[in-house]
Design a protein around this nucleic acid. Sequence first.
DNA 1: ATTCTGACTTGGG
DNA 2: CCCCAAGCCAGAA
Length: 120
Amino acid sequence: MGAPRKKPAVTTATPLTEYQSYHAIIRQIPRGSVLTYGDVAQLAGRPGSARRVGYSLAALKDQTVPWWRVVNARGEISERSGDFMGAAQVEQRVSLLREGVEFDADGKLDLARYRRGAPG
DNA sequence: ATTCTGACTTGGG
DNA sequence: CCCCAAGCCAGAA
């Protein structure tokens, strides 16, 4: 074929980075509901990459992402590194409490109840 | 280019 | 209930 291919005149839409795809999913979690890291990874079509969902949140700058609605598979708020006195964990818990999510004495929430798509 | 790092999950003992 | 090993793989240095 004739003309050599050149660079597209207009920048093609950059595909979402993996992190952005996780953030897009997290943005859709309704108030008062949660999703686990594994759920987010799976919904993004990357089962097995749960860990990286957390990493994507650690790198988060976009304030519109409700990061506090993501908990681990045991219904707990995960610890992060470099979190002085667990301040970030407290912040997450308070945010969820404000949305009506209740925690038991062990600091765990009932996934069967609050996980997005769960009854009740 | 290469190496190191995780806000996790699952399965097995 | 606890602890551990393996799997995951894009970013950051």
